[in-house]
Design a protein around this nucleic acid. Structure first.
Lengths: 194, 194
DNA sequence: GTAAACATGTAAACGGTTACATGATTAT
DNA sequence: ATAATCATGTAACCGTTTACATGTTTAC
């Protein structure tokens, strides 16, 4: 159910077509809440039915159209209300730690493969999140710039500060996973040696 | 799809009824892969259809029955094969960091509420995982004891070591989330002050 | 002319959540 | 007698994933 609010968060900055939304999405909120375009288009339609957004068809060339969505007052209220509601945490479902707990059932090399894969996976995320963090510090993230353009001066420091701490948290998590997996590799070496 | 392998991991230690499995589950693998009983019973049936486990109905008293499942050779092979297959990581979908990125749209108190809730959530997980870690160190976890009972002496150190590093990783993650949220609270104080 | 990018979807399947439903046995 | 625990499910719903489907416009 968070997809809806992730989309509202972006649309609140200004109207966008489904296509543009999806592109902005994958370069911003998509870093913490992934969604494919095949999920975004239908969700926008549902949000329109619920009165949270309104879409207008615009013509593009002679035959093509694009549907541009903007947030309604009800949509804005719904977003703020959600932000103030206690967050529903999802139950833990962590395939990597599930597997790690049973590595005794495979060879040392297979165990190493697992930890190496874990490092590769989290280094990928780390790179993305660190990149975002740099863009936040430099004010070189287009979404953030657009947002700041519609934000009162008093509110700007907060807007930046919360984005920064968010990505700092993600970066630290990724670093933690990588450090853990490196220790995993050392453990495998020790077990094999002794 | 990991539920299947989580269930196999437990059943490989020895036969269990759906009910007992579910109890063992919630006290062991359930810490990293949650599943309600309403999901476990049908999954066991599906695994039986797939030939991974076999169930036998046992009588309990006069009228009641319980179905005891054990892993087949095919089930054992499937588990080992899965353990050696590159892990499919799920796309990031993190409602807490999604929300954190937009805290400028609510009051300082609402932002504090969010971070406090985050701390409470992760302290809950931390307690569970730390408890497990203690049970692993003391060999006071019944599942681990049963597992060691069917494990060759040479393999025992590994079996313990992988469980330990798994829960250490989880504990560190929880500590990281808590430290992050505490910094969040400090940030809110600073923003409100200056 | 052709490829890249623009633009918007549908359909089927799957996994997970929540609520409901039922009854037997054992310990007090 | 009664409560706790044992024991096993079904059904409806929801969100997500994957694969498929189609056509337009713009830049080279």
């Amino acid at each position: 159910m968070s997809l809806r609010y992730a989309l509202l968060a972006i649309l609140r900055v200004g109207p966008l077509s489904g296509y543009d939304l999806q592109k902005q999405f994958s370069q911003s909120v998509g870093h913490v809440w992934h969604a494919p375009d095949s999920q975004i288009y239908p969700e926008l339609r549902k949000m329109e039915e619920a009165g949270l957004v309104e879409g207008e068809d615009q013509l593009r060339g002679e035959r093509a159209r694009r549907r541009v969505y903007h947030v309604t007052e009800a949509g804005d209220r719904a977003f703020i209300e959600w932000m103030q509601t206690p967050l529903e945490y999802q139950r833990v479902r962590d395939p990597a730690h599930l597997r790690a707990a049973y590595l005794e059932s495979v060879s040392y090399d297979a165990a190493r493969e697992f930890f190496r894969g874990h490092i590769a996976e989290w280094e990928g995320e780390l790179e993305q999140w660190r990149g975002e963090l740099v863009h936040i510090e430099n004010l070189s993230n287009p979404m953030l710039v657009r947002r700041l353009a519609v934000t009162a001066d008093v509110d700007k420091p907060r807007t930046i500060a919360f984005k920064r701490i968010t990505y700092e948290g993600l970066v630290e998590h990724a670093l933690g996973e990588i450090a853990w997996a490196r220790r995993g590799l050392e453990l495998v070496d020790e077990l094999e040696a002794g």
